[in-house]
Computed example of a mutant assay.
Amino acid sequence: MIRYALKCEEGHEFESWFQSASAFDSLAKSGHLSCAVCGATQVEKTLMTPRVGADKDRAVIVDPKVEALAKMRRDVEENATYVGGEFAEKAREMHEGTSPEGAIYGEASAAETRALIEDGVPVMPLPFKPKQKLQ
């Protein structure tokens, strides 16, 4: 097992374990890596200091904003249904009462989002890209 410090195209830094260096290269080449925070697929290794010896008292400093985003992502993915490009249509149907209400997330164009807001449909942009869209 090998641990790498990684950084996505959006600037989020995180670490991940891989079976080997070649396993990382294979996953990166096939597009199967994504940012733990935003889901971006442009992920690269960054400079990492080697860990020398065991340091049980070593404090891990975690950016609270990164943790909050990761938690929000988990909550959305666990408690809402991904509807992809049908988001605007599904949200409008729920608002009008023609389909059952439920938590959904997906993609909508700026014009679709603006129309939903103007019509009083409660929507909120998410600060991350859905993983489903990236697969």
Rank of each mutant, 00 (worst) to 15 (best):
R3G: 15
K7F: 02
C8E: 02
C8V: 01
E9F: 02
E10V: 06
H12V: 14
E13D: 15
F14G: 02
S16F: 10
S16M: 12
W17H: 13
S22Y: 12
A23Q: 12
A23G: 11
A23Y: 13
D25M: 05
A28F: 03
A28I: 07
K29I: 09
H32Q: 03
L33K: 09
C35V: 00
G39P: 02
Q42S: 09
K45S: 02
K45H: 07
T46Y: 08
L47D: 04
P50V: 03
R51T: 10
V52R: 11
G53M: 01
D55V: 04
R58H: 04
V60G: 07
V60C: 04
I61V: 02
I61K: 04
V62T: 11
P64N: 08
K65F: 09
L69K: 07
A70T: 12
D75P: 10
E77Y: 06
E77D: 11
E78N: 11
N79G: 10
Y82V: 12
Y82R: 14
V83N: 07
F87Y: 06
F87M: 00
E89A: 14
E89T: 13
K90N: 12
A91E: 02
A91C: 01
R92N: 04
E93R: 03
T98R: 10
P100W: 03
A103K: 03
S109G: 14
S109R: 05
A111T: 14
A111W: 11
A111R: 15
T113R: 03
I117K: 13
G120Y: 10
V121Q: 13
P122T: 08
V123K: 04
L126H: 04
F128E: 00
Q132L: 05
K133S: 09
K133Y: 08
L134A: 09
L134P: 05
